[in-house]
Amino acid sequence: METLLAHSFDYLSSYDQAKIRKGLRQVEGLLAQICLSRSKLSNADKRRSMQPTGSVPPPQKSLADLNEDPAFREFFKLQEGFQWNVAMRLISSLEHLLGRGSNGANDLLIISTLDLLQGVLLLHPPSRSLFAREIYMNLLLDLLEPGNCPAIQSSTLLTLVTALLDNPTNTRTFEELDGLLTVTSLFKLRATSREVKLKLVEFLYFYLMPETPSIPIANASAPNTAVLGLQRSPSKIAGAFSRSVNAAGDFSRDTGADTKTTEYKQAILGRYLNNVEDLVEDLKETAPFGGKVY
C-alpha cells in the first residue's frame, strides 16, 4: 500500500494534468478496493456476474465491516503519519490547481480532487482536524468564490460539510473566517445557479444542527504524526466512527466548551440572512439529518 501511495503522491505533485489525473485515479482505486468487498457476493450473484449480459457490482461495506477489514486497518494506520496522509496530499493538489485559473480540464481535476477528499475524510475522520487550520479552511472558502463554476461550488459545499462533521473546532474556524458571509453572499447573488442555491440551503440546514463534541485526538506533541499530531492504534479505530446525531443526547444544551446549540448558531446566521427562524422551524419539523432540534 505504501508503494501505491508513493506513486500516486508523485503524480499528484506534478504540474502535468495527465499525471495529476493518473494520481487521482490511483487514489480512487485504492479507496474503492477498501470500500468494496468481492468476497461477500452470494453464489447466485457470482453466477449472474459470469453471464455475458452484465456483471454484479460488489456490495459496499458498512463502517462496522471496515473496522474488521485488514486493508482498511492498514490504510487507517498509514493515515496517522504525515508521510502517507492522503488528505494532506489532496489539499496540496487543490492549492496548485486553484492557482492555475479556471478552464475546463482544470475544473474537472478540482472536482475530482474534492470528491476524493470527501471520501478520505469519511474513511479517516481524524484528518478532518486539518481544517481547524485557517490556511486549509480558507482554501475551501476560496473555491466558493462566484468566479468558480457551479460544479466546483457544489462539490466544495459537500466537502465543507464533511470537514465540519462532528468537529465543532472546525466550525469555529469557519465562523471566524467569515465563512457564513461567504456562503450567504453566494446565496444572495442572482448569478448563482439554482443547483448551487439548493446546496447552499442544505448546507445551512446542516450548519444549524446542534453540535456533538469533536472526536478526541491523542497527544498532540507526539513526533512523526499527521499535521495535527493524530495518532491512534488500530484497536481504537471504531471510536472514530462511533459518533452519531442520535448518540449525543440532549442537543438543547452545549455538550462541551467548543460546541454550540442551534439557538447560538441561529443568532450568528441572522447577522447575514433574514428569516433564519423559518429555516430553524423547518429543520425542527423535517429533521433532514435524523436528529432532533429543540
Rank of each mutant, 00 (worst) to 15 (best):
S242V: 01
I215T: 13
F72Q: 02
A87D: 00
P58N: 11
R38T: 11
L130I: 11
W84F: 10
R21V: 09
L208V: 09
I215C: 10
F131R: 04
T262W: 00
G249V: 00
S8C: 04
L36H: 11
F9I: 01
T53P: 09
N167M: 10
L117K: 03
A87F: 03
E202A: 14
P150N: 04
S127V: 08
L164W: 05
Q118D: 10
A238K: 08
Y15E: 00
E134G: 14
L122G: 12
M1Y: 14
N85Y: 01
K188V: 05
H124L: 12
E145P: 01
S62M: 08
S221F: 13
L158E: 12
D65N: 07
Y136P: 12
Y294Q: 13
E175D: 11
L97D: 02
K199G: 15
A32Y: 10
D282A: 08
D45Y: 08
T286W: 02
D10R: 06
R253I: 15
R133G: 05
F76T: 02
A247I: 03
S42H: 05
T162N: 15
D178M: 06
T159Y: 10
A151D: 04
D166R: 07
R21W: 13
T225R: 15
A222G: 02
P223R: 13
S154F: 10
V280H: 11
R271H: 15
L12W: 10
E285Y: 15
N148S: 14
F72V: 03
R253Y: 10
E281N: 08
G81I: 03
A71D: 11
V27D: 03
P288D: 07
K292N: 08
E95H: 13
Y11D: 14
V201N: 05
G256T: 01
I215H: 07
P57N: 01
T259Y: 02
